[in-house]
Nucleic acid binder design. Structure first.
Length: 731
DNA sequence: TCCCACTTTCTTTTT
DNA sequence: GAAAGTGGGA
């Protein structure tokens, strides 16, 4: 195809490799784009190029991004290059775009358009009730573990029947059994979980070829960001979408794949050229983000991975400062270290608070850091962690809204039936539930016929009737009132705010605040989406909006978040904390090479967020599970080329209140220096137990007086053993 | 049915 | 050390 318009910006804004990738609009295209190499820019210009040359209408473009925030930015930047109408373009995350598709077409699969989206807590709650019903011992098969297995099966497009057929171990058999019931329950509730959002479009397309053809026809150009983190379901659905025009452009970096644990398959990107033999490949290897030392340090770690394509990013930036590694005595010291560096950066380099990001492996680490920043009065924002919409009081209100929107949602119905307390206890609910099941009714239907249910007291029936008429009333009001009016009247009527006020504890007051904030969020949503946006849209927005989507990168505050959340972002100064064996890399990952490599990629992702300064820290000891084990320096720190590193140890000063950091001339400490009393055992070691048989040591915890081992037994799962009593044999 | 005190588990990471 | 789960008593 000849290019009708040769835009000036193609030459001014892009380097040669980027421009080639943009111009290759037709056919399958794979763009291997290293960290900071401008892949977002390529995607944006690609869309702009397609539109500017009239190759497609906006509505014929489908662009998958990793976050809603990224989608919004992309849309905005495209419209700045190509002013004009952008409406009709499908740009968003897999989950939000597929939810849109399923609201339109899900009817064919037996879901009505008002389906509820279940988040992880809902999934767990549902699984728990299934486990109780099927009498599955929760100790042996924790709902969490079952959920993870089910989720992996779903994302691998395995049906419950296939899972049952393939099941060997007791765990797999249980998973398959629960999985089948789980799916049935979701459907009965007219609910989809996050995984269903990805797999139902595939079912739809497979069962309804005409629907498939419509969408295949419609989307002339498909663009996918972060392709290295797609799972099987995403992969299959993309191929279905691209089936006709085959103009599919995927962008990714195998070194930045960090979601294997939730089913992402690296082979999707590694095998793209096998799937599309005529595909064109482009490599973006010039990094525009980081100084050379940071880039080299990150590279010196990630080269230790075996599962990767060899490549090396380059930059024409200066070397920059050395990467600083600091050894701290404990996590509070680590917090102080960060304060210290921030104030120094302020003095020396004229920074703003938003120039800094503090990254960590687990959310639990944020607390100490938060305390340190607060004590010093430094503004900060935490991305992730306990999410607003997951707070109890917020979920309670949302549960009401969900039930109003979708009465079949039995899970949320059970949540609110006795919240606030109205005398409908567990026993009553259980009776109605089993009666409902006997008669093939949904819970809400049974509730309206409470008088017929045997064994219910008069008081209980009266309470239920009051509750049912409350719901009926608001269902009727739904069409008359605006979203805001509906929710605020409802909150008034159930007396939630008043109840919190009466309790008067700081905790309940903050709950009241959260409920008010939820009302604010409703107002904000209406302002953004327009008055026509229905309850189901608001609820979908709530389910699929993450912290990172609302994070404001220009607010004047230090950002705290997990390494995972930091993907795709950049900051002048980055701190990566908690670089200790067992924390980063996490102990569970150490025993499995593939997981360890993923941890290493996570380190790579974190390090390459930094533009100018990278501070890495580890602590000699850190509180975990209320205990305080000794730590060993992370292997990742040892893998960094020592010529790129400035190693510093902080010593608690004799004078209280004063701290200093002193350079330490010695080489970095090695594992051997850290000889623990646990010398006999180490993580990853194979052991045998008289009752549980063979297993692998997952974790070693040093308590105050005794040591605890966590061992993953081949046939008994995880057990915690107290060392002096566990008669373990080393294999 | 509800509330309080006690025990247990939990820490990966996220749409 | 917190949050959630368990069990006994009112």
């Amino acid at each position: 195809m000849s290019i009708s318009v040769e835009q000036k910006w193609l030459h001014e804004e892009l380097n040669e490799a980027q421009r080639d990738a943009v111009l290759a609009s037709e056919g399958p295209v794979l763009i291997l784009a290293g960290a900071g190499s401008g892949k977002t820019r390529v995607l944006i210009y690609r869309i702009a190029y397609i539109l500017a040359n009239g190759l497609a209408e906006p509505r014929e473009i489908l662009a998958m991004t990793f976050t809603n925030k990224a989608a919004g930015e992309m849309r905005e930047r495209v419209s700045r290059i190509i002013p004009g109408q952008m409406s009709g373009m499908w740009i968003g995350t897999f989950h939000s775009l597929y939810a849109r598709l399923l609201r339109r077409e899900g009817e064919r699969l037996g879901y009505s358009a008002n389906f509820t989206i279940y988040d992880e807590n809902d999934q767990i709650a549902l699984l728990k009730s299934i486990c109780v019903e099927l009498k599955i011992p929760a100790q042996e098969f924790s709902p969490r573990r079952l959920l993870h297995q089910i989720s992996l099966a779903k994302n691998a497009l395995q049906s419950p029947e296939q899972a049952a057929a393939a099941a060997d171990t007791a765990l797999e058999q249980t998973v398959a059994r629960v999985y089948g019931v789980f799916q049935r329950r979701l459907r009965e509730a007219n609910a989809m979980d996050f995984d269903d959002l990805l797999i139902k479009p595939i079912e739809l397309f497979q069962q309804f070829p005409l629907v498939k053809e419509y969408y295949q026809d419609r989307f002339h150009y498909i663009l996918v960001d972060e392709y290295q983190d797609t799972n099987r379901a995403q992969y299959v659905s993309l191929n279905l979408f691209a089936g006709k025009h085959k103009n599919i452009c995927v962008v990714g970096d195998d070194d930045q794949s960090i979601y294997r644990w939730r089913g992402a398959e690296l082979r999707n990107i590694l095998d793209f050229s096998a799937d599309y033999p005529d595909c064109r490949k482009y490599r973006l290897e010039q990094n525009y983000r980081s100084v050379q030392n940071i880039l080299s340090a990150a590279h010196s770690v990630v080269v230790n991975n075996r599962q990767r394509h060899d490549k090396k990013l380059w930059t024409d930036k200066a070397d920059g400062d050395l990467v600083m590694i600091t050894e701290c005595s404990d996590e509070r010291e680590e917090g102080r270290l960060i304060l210290d560096r921030i104030s120094r950066e302020f003095r020396e380099n004229d920074r703003r608070f938003y120039d800094f990001a503090v990254l960590y492996r687990t959310n639990a680490q944020s607390r100490v850091l938060e305390e340190a920043l607060r004590a010093e009065g430094i503004p900060y924002v935490i991305v992730g962690g306990v999410k607003f919409y997951e707070r109890k009081e917020v979920k309670d209100v949302l549960a009401y809204l969900r039930v109003l929107c979708n009465p079949n949602d039995g899970l949320n119905l059970k949540r609110i039936i006795n919240t606030p307390v109205r005398g409908i206890g567990d026993a009553t609910v259980a009776k109605i539930e089993s009666w409902a099941r006997e008669h093939g009714l949904a819970l809400h239907q049974a509730l309206s016929r409470a008088a017929e249910v045997p064994g219910l007291g008069k008081r209980a029936v009266a309470s239920i009737n009051r509750f049912v008429s409350l719901l009926k009333k608001y269902q009727a009001l739904q069409s008359e009132l605006s979203l805001q009016e509906l929710s605020s009247t409802l909150i008034d009527e159930i007396g939630l705010l008043q109840q919190y006020k009466e309790e008067g504890t700081p905790e309940s007051l903050s709950r009241a605040d959260n409920v008010r904030e939820l009302l604010l969020a409703v107002a904000e949503f209406t302002a953004m989406a327009g008055p026509d946006a229905g309850l189901e849209h608001f609820l979908q927005h709530v389910s699929l909006t993450t912290d990172i989507d609302v994070w404001d990168d220009r607010s004047n505050a230090v950002t705290l978040m997990t390494l995972h959340s930091a993907k795709g972002l950049e900051f002048p100064v980055v701190f990566i904390t908690g670089l200790e064996e067992g924390l980063f890399p996490l102990s569970r990952s150490i025993i499995e090479p593939a997981s360890l490599e993923e941890e290493r990629r996570l380190f790579y992702v974190g390090a390459t967020r930094a533009q100018e300064k990278l501070y890495l820290s580890w602590t000699r000891t850190r509180r975990r599970y209320g205990e305080r084990p000794g730590n060993v320096i992370s292997r990742f720190l040892k893998e960094i080329d020592s010529r790129l590193v400035d190693y510093v140890t902080t010593h608690p000063s004799a004078m209280p209140g004063r701290r200093r950091a002193e350079p330490c001339d010695q080489d970095m400490p090695s594992y051997e220096d850290e000889s623990q009393e646990t010398a006999e055992f180490h993580i990853g070691m194979r052991v045998a137990h008289p009752t549980f048989g063979p297993g692998t040591v997952l974790k070693i915890q040093s308590g105050y007086s005794q040591l605890k081992l966590i061992v993953l037994f081949d046939s008994y799962g995880e057990k915690r053993l107290v060392l002096p009593y566990a008669k373990l044999q080393i294999l």
